[in-house]
């Protein structure tokens, strides 16, 4: 079971990283989401895998899983949600300002339809 979860985590990471390397805002956001699933699973797994022992105190139960990673993952999920919401709006704003959804926000002008790098300001 550990092996299969480990593979799942690695798979999610790989897919997430690949998508984060794409050139358009949307796949990058999808990639971020996949990566955050992977991260959350990994963080959760740092408490090791325990079946049927939720950390809810009850008089007749003696075995509980580690509650700390769960609390950490909860915080991470919430923060991740906030960040996702923000980057989605940022992507929308980039689209509205550049007329394109390229991550480098190339300004769309009549003569530069091709994949041209943005003008440097530096």
């Amino acid at each position: 079971m550990e092996a299969i979860l480990a593979i799942a985590i690695g798979l999610l990471f790989g897919c997430g990283v690949y998508l984060m390397l794409r050139a358009r805002t949307f796949p990058v956001i999808i990639g971020l989401t996949l990566t955050s699933y992977a991260v959350n699973l990994f963080l959760f797994a740092s408490g090791r895998l325990v079946v049927n022992a939720p950390p809810i105190i009850s008089a007749d139960i003696v075995r509980y899983t580690d509650p700390i990673p769960q609390a950490l993952v909860l915080t991470a999920i919430v923060i991740g949600f906030g960040m996702t919401a923000y980057i989605v709006t940022l992507a929308l704003r980039g689209l509205s300002e550049s007329g394109d959804d390229h991550v480098d926000m190339i300004e769309k002008t009549a003569d530069s339809a091709s994949n041209q790098l943005p003008k440097r300001r530096l």
């Binding site: 984060m20 990058v28 971020l32 990566t35 923000y86 992507a91 980039g94 991550v103 480098d104 926000m105």
Partner: peptide, 25 residues
């Protein structure tokens, strides 16, 4: 300029945050 630099900054830092969480795990 702000949107462009902002998107790069945010994306890169989100990737950084993911690595941070892995480190914490």
């Amino acid at each position: 300029n702000k949107s462009r630099a902002g998107f790069a900054y945010v994306t890169l830092n989100l990737a950084g945050s993911a690595v941070f969480l892995v480190a914490l795990g």
